[in-house]
Design a protein around this nucleic acid. Structure first.
Length: 428
RNA sequence: GGAGGAGUGGCCGAGUGGUCGAAGGCGGCGGACUUGAAAUCCGCUGAAUCCGCAAGGGUUCCGGGGGUUCGAAUCCCUUCUCCUCCGCCA
């Protein structure tokens, strides 16, 4: 959510900043409703003030034996006027709210405008591996090594689901262990949140109302309590401190959480994204920070560096992209993706997305902090970064580290959990 | 799932229809006293929002939502959370 005051006072500036990510926007209607809302509010408060005044007088008048009946009559009228104005105010507020809830965040200065064609590669690590033999793609490798069962996954969950088995499960779990160990060492607190969340959580994260269609809902007659399966642990972590005021001294707050992520991914199925590159359920560890506004830019660098080190630890070749405005999630002012090389696709695929939401999510969730020695609470900044999405990493690992004999070399850092250096068809 | 009980400001806790944003205490901040500290005394000490250049003023908030009433922290309905007992169950 943007600050409506900023739109009121700097309409043109906001319009231009948003032009990087969306079509020209007309704020007139919004500002009219906002104006009406404030006017109604003022009238309402005058009437309520009168009512409070009279309510204070009545006991005294009664005591001195005066007739309060005429006052009752007046107050009855005032009461119904108040009711009418309350309804009008609620209506105006709802219109402002509806408009505001759909506005995306303002991109940072250094974020390129336009869509993903304008993404800028800002860093590369390692080289594209070369092979002197006919390589296999990850679907082939994972099947032949009996690490993933695609057919039975579909039998169980339908299209877009798979089953990790044997070394596949162990690799997945080893990655999670590696992430947990690394994040703990970096001072992040380990959280295991519910996977089923209330609608308010999606709103605070900025996923609702706009992207409410990409999540799986649980049945409920009441829309306001219709729970959903979380599409990322970020949705849970942003809500940890919703409606709270945090002491400045305890910032930054650093968390990470492991959850599966459940997404409909409606219409995004493409043949080259078969296998475990895109599914309705995938595992991810999410890093999250709550910071003071002046610290969020540095925190984004820190999150990105941390995520990069995790990928480097695995020895995978990757690049880092600064996303163009239209490619960022609506909630984010700036996003950098770590994209790992998938040889069979001849493409870099996102395994981590590090973003600064600035105060956009904090405003939706009323998440604030109080500076030492000041009275007024301020909105804080929130940031998140995947650390990492395992299901995207597995294809990269088996493809990048495949050998001529169809085996796969296990990255050094995972061996203590895998218990072996090499995954080979014969050994499974 | 059933039966009771409770949810009040940073914390504890009083308040059962009227002048209550709410006694009292603790904590915190400022001051007096003191070489300093402790103790003591005095004052201040929630949030949101609107009007205003400001000073200041208004309104709302006593778990959430709705209702009754001229007027609700107080009465009614509903919902959530916690506690106790019973039942059931990984």
């Amino acid at each position: 959510m943007l600050d409506i005051k900023r739109i009121r006072d700097h309409t043109e500036e906001v319009r231009q900043a948003l032009a990087k990510r969306m079509d020209a926007i007309d704020f007139r209607e919004l500002l009219d409703w906002d104006e009406a809302r404030r006017r109604t509010q003022a009238e309402l408060e005058t009437l309520r003030s009168r009512r409070n005044e009279v309510s204070g007088q009545i006991p005294q008048l009664k005591k001195s034996g005066e007739d309060v009946q005429p006052l009752f009559e007046e107050m009855k009228r005032v009461g119904s006027e108040i009711k009418a104005l309350e309804a009008a105010a609620a209506e105006h507020e709802a219109r402002v709210e509806t408009f505001m809830a759909r506005l995306p965040n303002i991109p940072d200065e250094d974020v390129p405008s336009g869509d993903k064609d304008n993404n800028q590669v800002v860093a590369t690590w390692g080289d594209q591996p070369t092979f002197d033999f006919a390589t296999r793609d990850h679907v082939e490798l994972l099947s032949s090594l009996k690490m993933v069962d695609y057919e039975r996954g579909t039998k169980l969950g339908g299209r877009g689901f798979w089953i990790y088995r044997g070394d596949g499960s162990r690799l997945e779990w080893a990655l999670l262990n590696y992430f947990v160990e690394t994040h703990l060492a970096a001072g992040y607190e380990f959280m295991l949140p519910p996977h089923i969340l209330l609608p308010q959580c999606g709103y605070t994260a900025g996923q609702f109302p706009k992207f409410g269609d990409d999540v799986f809902y649980l049945e409920s007659t009441e829309e306001r309590e219709r729970q959903f399966l979380l599409p990322t642990a970020e949705t849970a972590l942003i809500n940890l401190h919703r409606d709270e005021i945090i002491d400045e001294g305890s910032l930054p707050l650093k968390y990470f959480a492991y959850t599966p992520c459940y997404r409909k991914e409606a219409g995004s199925y493409r043949t080259e994204e078969r296998g475990t590159v895109r599914g309705h359920q995938f595992n991810k560890v999410e890093l999250f920070q709550y910071t003071r506004p002046e610290d969020s830019a540095a925190a984004l660098d820190e999150l990105l560096d941390h995520a990069k080190r995790v990928v480097q630890g695995l020895g995978l070749h990757y690049q880092v992209s600064l996303l163009a405005a239209k490619d960022c999630s609506d909630s984010m002012a700036k996003t950098l993706d770590i994209e790992v090389w998938i040889p069979s696709m001849r493409q870099y695929k996102e395994v981590s997305s590090a973003s600064n939401a600035r105060d956009y999510q904090a405003r939706r969730g009323q998440i604030r902090f109080r500076r030492q020695g000041t009275k007024k609470p301020e909105l804080l900044h929130t940031l998140n970064a995947s650390g990492l999405a395992t299901s995207r990493l597995v294809p990269a690992i088996v493809e990048q580290f495949q050998q001529a004999d169809g085996s796969v070399v296990v990255p050094e850092v995972l061996r203590k959990w895998m218990g072996k250096e090499r995954l080979s068809p014969s050994a499974t």
